[in-house]
Amino acid sequence: MTTSEEEHQLILAAKAEPTRFAPLYERYFGDIYRFLLRRALDPDLTADLTQQTFLKAMLGLARYEPRGLPFRAWLYRIALNEVRMHWRKKKEVLIDLSYQEVHGLSEEMGLEMDEHEMQRLATAMGRLDAEKARLIELRYMDGLSFAELGQVLGIGEEAAKMRTHRVLGRLREQLVPRR
C-alpha cells in the first residue's frame, strides 16, 4: 500500500469513527507543531495552537475531500487560520529564519547572497504585504509544493506558481538595483 493510499484509509476510518483519528494525529503532529512554532515562537503556546488545529480538523473531518492532495496541506490551512487569529491582536511579529531556509529562496531568485545581502532580503521580505509574505513563507520556510500551497491558500496550483514567481521577481528587483 502506498503512503497516500494508507493515508486515505486512515481518513476513512477516522471519518467513520472519530476515536480512530489518533494515527493521523500521531503522523502529522510534528509537522504541524514545527509549522506553528515558526510563527508563534513560544513552545507552550504552539502546543495549544497545535491541539486546537487538530480539534478543528476532527470536527471538520466529515467535510474533508482529498482531491488527490495530501491531508497535511489541509491541516496547514487550519493551522494558518489559528495563527492568523492569534496574530490579530499583535502589531508586529518576528519570524526567525536560518541561512539554510533562505538558501532555496535565494537560489530560485538566482542570487548569490552574503551576510549583508541576507539582511537586505529580510528587509525586503518585511515590506511585502501579508498575502505575498505568506506565499514565500509557505513555499520556502515550510517547503510546501505548489499544489499544497494552492490548497492551503484556496487557489489553483498554477495560480500559486504564478503568484510566487511574481513575488520572487519583486524581491529580486529590490535586491538587484536596476542599471
Binding site: 508586529e92 526567525d96 529564519l97 541561512y99 521580505m125 518585511g126
Partner: peptide, 10 residues
C-alpha cells in the same frame, strides 16, 4: 512582519 535571518535561525 519582521524577518531576522541568522546562520542558525531559530
Amino acid at each position: 512582519r519582521r524577518y531576522r535571518i541568522t546562520p542558525e535561525g531559530r
